[in-house]
Write a protein that binds this DNA or RNA. Structure first.
Lengths: 301, 301
DNA sequence: TCTTACTATAGGGAATAGCTATAGTCGCTA
DNA sequence: TAGCGACTATAGCTATTCCCTATAGTAAGA
């Protein structure tokens, strides 16, 4: 049984005549004749009654033809479903992003993406780097935005921008009047950090080796927002990425002081599986990155 | 697009691996590989993402596969409708049956069925009720034998027999000399049960409310056979269906004691889709049930 | 670096679906 | 009843398709 044979029996039932049915199917009459006979032989049932001057479906044949129409309809839908999916920029893209990037980058990125891929909404998964690596590998997200290094075997990465770190102190802090601060100056235990697992925490510890890894929970924040509040309330100072400090996140309880050049920074990248079937979606994301306007992002694309 | 190609993509989605999918379809791996590529080319869409160690449908591919399943199902119905015009008692019947019935009922049932429908072999799928419900719905089996209640929308059921529960104790157990046992007597944590998911477990818990739902794995068996062995080894007592206790399953390590009348029982039924094209096959099954001779089955047909 | 597991490609052979030509069948008409 | 017209079935051939084996390519793990 083939789809072609099903088309033949439907046509024959419709035309009531081998020759016309053959013409309808754009094949020769013997072709159709043989195909019908073959199908009847396969089923072991006579589907059509050949009378004088007419061909009409048998009782079984009638039911078979009706069912064949349904089957052909469903088969045609397969093609339609496939055709609908041809545009790689249509349909949701599953994007993973780390906590210290998502809330600051995504509002702008989504805005920018709407221009280049208006029919591609983002399904966003915010999590930590290690979890996102697993999700990428397990095909639970399509693309992730993380800070380098991101050494996951079998994954492609592309750096999209660099972002400086800045020192954040409460209003009235002795450092407030300084023009810059050297990484070595950031030291001791009044430095507030993210909890373990956040890659940004490790980057700060790498950039400022004098910072002691804290023992108490008091100095650890769950998110950059929390850290900001803790700084504002006078608990200590901290180091935060540039993008987390811009409008509308500024307030007048904290002061932001740049590092001495070359300032510590992190490199942010896209990552995806090499076999990902929508490369144009990646390109669209890169285009959207190119559309970013904030000076916090030193674009690499 | 051909039906064969649709079968290939369904198999590939199911197996997640070209080689296994090819084996499943009884073709060589290159054949399947080429066919998939051809179909993707025809549709102009990548249906599968080839990664290292995995092959998974793309977003489009997933939808296409789902639709392909429907199309294949309808196409298969064409064949079934055609077969309906032949002898409905010819050709394999796909029968699903739960674990706690299959091994005990089927040997007799098949024997009995050979008389009324010698040309209708059974393709047997043994599984748990919930899985069988899905398989029935998805047209992966034609008929199932389960214990009531079986409330699946769009499915017809017909009770075929009742079957009592009996208490099983190891030789030497204090209950061995009793003529009967009340359901309330079966209590505490020395009662061995099937693991969760088996409907018979829930029926026992319903019939004997004093049985505590066990916390440890020690008291849980994978099958009735396992439970019998655990009872025989002295781990505890249990409640089993009558049919699982007859010859040739008896041994002299356990004793079987009936419940006090009215003994707890389960009602076993056939279930099938209302549109199933071989109603005579159902009738033949019922006839086969009527031919059962074991006293464990209190026939309802 | 070698091995292993997997997918893609190449090339050839068998099956098949299509074609044209023609035979067979039935009813009608001369 | 012979011939004709309208139709379907059969025969014989060809081009295509389908599937096979063998092998190359590739990435990950030992």
């Amino acid at each position: 049984m083939t789809l072609t044979e099903l088309r033949y029996i439907v046509a024959l039932a419709q035309e009531g005549n081998f020759s016309r049915a053959a013409e309808f199917c754009s094949v020769s009459q013997p072709t159709l004749s043989v195909a019908i006979a073959r199908l009847e032989d396969e089923f072991g049932v006579q589907l059509f009654e050949r009378g004088k001057g007419f061909v009409s479906p048998s009782a079984v044949g009638h039911k078979v033809v009706e069912q064949a129409k349904r089957a052909l309809g469903e088969a045609e839908k397969v093609r339609q479903v496939a055709m609908l999916g041809r545009d790689q920029l249509e349909g949701p893209l599953r994007l993973g992003v780390i906590h210290t990037i998502g809330p600051y980058l995504l509002p702008q990125l989504i805005h920018s993406l709407k221009v280049v891929a208006p029919a591609m909404p983002l399904a966003i998964e915010e999590n930590m780097t290690a979890t996102l690596a697993d999700m990428l590998h397990d095909n639970e997200v399509d693309v992730v935005i993380i800070a380098l290094p991101f050494d996951v075997p079998g994954v492609l990465t592309r750096a999209i921008y660099d972002e400086s770190f800045k020192v954040v102190v409460p209003r009235g802090h002795p450092w407030e009047s300084r023009e810059w601060i050297a990484p070595e100056d950031v030291a001791g235990d009044e430095v507030l950090l993210l909890k373990a697992g956040n890659c940004f925490r490790d980057q700060v510890l790498g950039a400022c080796p004098q910072v002691s890894s804290p023992e108490t929970d008091v100095r650890l924040g769950h998110s950059i927002g929390t850290i900001r509040c803790m700084v504002a309330s006078g608990l200590g100072v901290s180091v935060l990425p540039d993008s987390a400090l811009g409008h509308p996140y500024s307030n007048d309880m904290i002061s932001v002081i740049p590092f001495k050049e070359p300032a510590p920074a992190r490199r942010v990248a896209l990552a995806w599986r090499p076999g990902f079937v929508r490369p144009k979606a990646i390109e669209a994301l890169l285009d959207a990155v190119r559309g970013l306007r904030s000076p916090a992002y030193r674009l690499l694309v």
